[in-house]
Design a binder for these strands. Sequence first.
DNA 1: ATGACCGTCTCAGACGGA
Length: 262
Amino acid sequence: MQLVTWNVNSLKMRLPRVLELLAEHAPDVVCLQETKCEDAAFPADELAAAGYHAVHHSAGRWAGVAIVARAELALEDPVSGLPGELRDDEARWIEATVGGVRVISTYVPNGREVGSPTFVEKLAFLDAAAARVSALRSDGGGGAPLAVAGDFNVAPADVDVYDPAAFATSTHVTGEERSRIDALLQAGGLVDAYRVLDPDGAHFTWWDYRQGHFHRGLGLRIDLVLVSQRLAPALERVGIERDYRKGTKPSDHAPLVAQWAD
DNA sequence: ATGACCGTCTCAGACGGA
């Protein structure tokens, strides 16, 4: 299976680049974040013309997540929302079973400032995510493996940050956030798929639009695909498609592609 | 290339993003 996760920063603005990705990679599944797309405006027809269908969780102008799959692959048992999240109107979590894998697309709250109300919401969201993957792990009757993909808004280690000193007082790097990523992995029996094949490399998935950060190599690795441990030996490729951060109307995030043998 | 972001909702400027 080939799975892509991509924070598109508006599906409406990014649709040409999304269709480009579908044509180039022909992925089985694409997890999208920040669709910023009302239900009525969701581009189902354009995706269908490309041979894909989708389930979508919308909050209107902000956030929004979707799971897109090849039309031949059913999107079974879709569930929107995360039990225990403090803001259940923000559309940050969606699940569906695709090809025997329980796939989740998530957009973790940014947190803005350490200690702010939204930072508290971010930590609570990560706690709720850990509880949810623990439940999915234990009650999976058929033992469906998990793929939790999305924009976690946490850089798991200092190597995932272009300048750790510059982030000394920032969100995305605190012990509180990183320990919750570790707890999420533990709760779900998951591994960070990117690190399975590249244990040490400094490679990023997000670069600020401002000040030429992309061209200066100043980014963060905050987009992750977390897979059940039993999938780890089957991983064939986990790569960041940097070219999608270039060209006409790029998102500030690059797609992350994970491929494993079925 | 010596300056410097993008998208949303609304229509000049706020708000969110990380």
